[in-house]
Nucleic acid binder design. Structure first.
Lengths: 221, 221
DNA sequence: ACATCATTCAAGTTATTTATTGAATGTTAG
DNA sequence: CTAACATTCAATAAATAACTTGAATGATGT
């Protein structure tokens, strides 16, 4: 303990903050939150080189945000626990609350259409059992396969325009995607509303839904 | 919006993480959590130069963690809201849970004496009304003056040895300091226990106590 | 044992961040 | 208006972090 313990402690706490300070690592966290994955899959999804992704993942692990295990030839990364999700969401909440820039970006996604308040997960759960709602999962098919809300229909943003005309204008549509940092649901809701449909966004994404202990359907591996 | 909105958003969220990635800024946050203060006072307390502190404070402000207002010649900084405290504490929790290094540093503070579990704020509040407990505030006098738990006695670590012999071995002693990152209370409890006293640490510090909506006594300014 | 595959390590380059210094800004008091 | 003061800005040097490339490690299957 050559330096003061106080400074040493702050250094360790700052390590956690530093892990959250690079967009590349937030992207990785978002992906890992969809379900555990190996380095190559994560690198693919995020557009990072494998070596680069590996290094970022090690930083996340050192900070205690993710853990890894070896599965045959692959190393599988997953979130350590729910605290990582809470941290990720707090980052978003603080940013959205205080950074005018974020407001502008999110408003830009709606392109004129007014974005309605998101639906809470409690509300959706209640409505799910009544069957009075259409749920759209706007994530890529492979993430949908790893787990999705029961009854949700997987639609890519590209297909959305084509599918919009087939949807019932009377039934409310609720769209969700990856979670705090994902903008697919924002874009889907805006597109649907331009078609005159009654669409809203789910608060949070699949990781938060799962974390609530609600049912998640996964395709057999 | 020259780059993708997704990347722009992540950049903004990462800004919040980056603000939490430097020990100097965590120190500043800890100080600001004691009560609002001007740049010079914060620089003094943290040992930073004024210009340096000013720049760090602006980063914290850009990230939305603190806000500032002008009061005469001074610029006063304060925490934006309770979310900042939650973020700070989550950093500590994640670090303590996963970083063996933190464990070692904290254990080193106790120097052999086994550290008991901290007392919850609920427990302390209950015991306060019964008057069956001695509360020690081990922060510097000026921070004590800005606000402290009613009935607490302000004692510096230096005075502690001298005062230990005057304390009743039968009454439980509860020590607190600045909050998540402060180690004074750890050290005080260790010292008192070496004197055979029944001492424990309060969970969290003054900022958390205040945030709970509990009474705080401040000396007249 | 050998070849193969996924991941990590190591070294070098580029880009960011930090701390310091001195000047500039904005506010109050005389 | 001017002087005094607190803070911020600007420019620099030093320290850190990010990304790339190619080699090394570790596990699996033949």
């Amino acid at each position: 303990m050559s330096i003061s313990p106080k400074a040493a402690l702050l250094e360790e706490y700052a390590l956690v903050g530093r892990a959250l300070s690079a967009p590349a690592r937030l992207m990785l966290l978002e992906q890992i939150a969809q379900g555990e994955r190996g380095v190559e899959a994560l690198a693919d999804k995020t557009g990072l080189t494998i070596a680069n992704a590996s290094q970022h993942l090690q930083q996340l692990r050192r900070a205690g945000l993710v853990t890894s295990r070896r599965d045959g030839k692959s190393v599988i990364y997953r979130l350590s626990d729910a605290k990582t999700l809470v941290l990720m969401d707090l980052l978003r909440v603080v940013a959205e609350r205080n950074l005018a820039q974020v407001e502008r970006i999110l408003r830009g996604l709606s392109e004129g259409a007014d974005a309605p308040e998101p639906v809470s997960r409690d509300d959706l759960a209640a409505r799910l059992s009544e069957g009075t709602v259409t749920i759209l999962d706007v994530r890529p098919a492979d993430e949908f396969a790893l787990g999705h809300i029961p009854g949700a229909r997987n639609v890519s943003l590209g297909e959305l325009e084509r599918i919009a005309v087939t949807l019932d204008a009377g039934t409310e549509i609720i769209a969700y995607c990856r979670g705090p940092y994902c903008i697919y649901a924002h874009q889907a809701v805006a597109a649907l509303r331009r078609h005159g449909l009654n669409a809203r966004r789910l608060e949070g994404g699949l990781p938060e839904w799962r974390e609530d202990g609600r049912p998640v359907l996964a395709d057999a591996q």
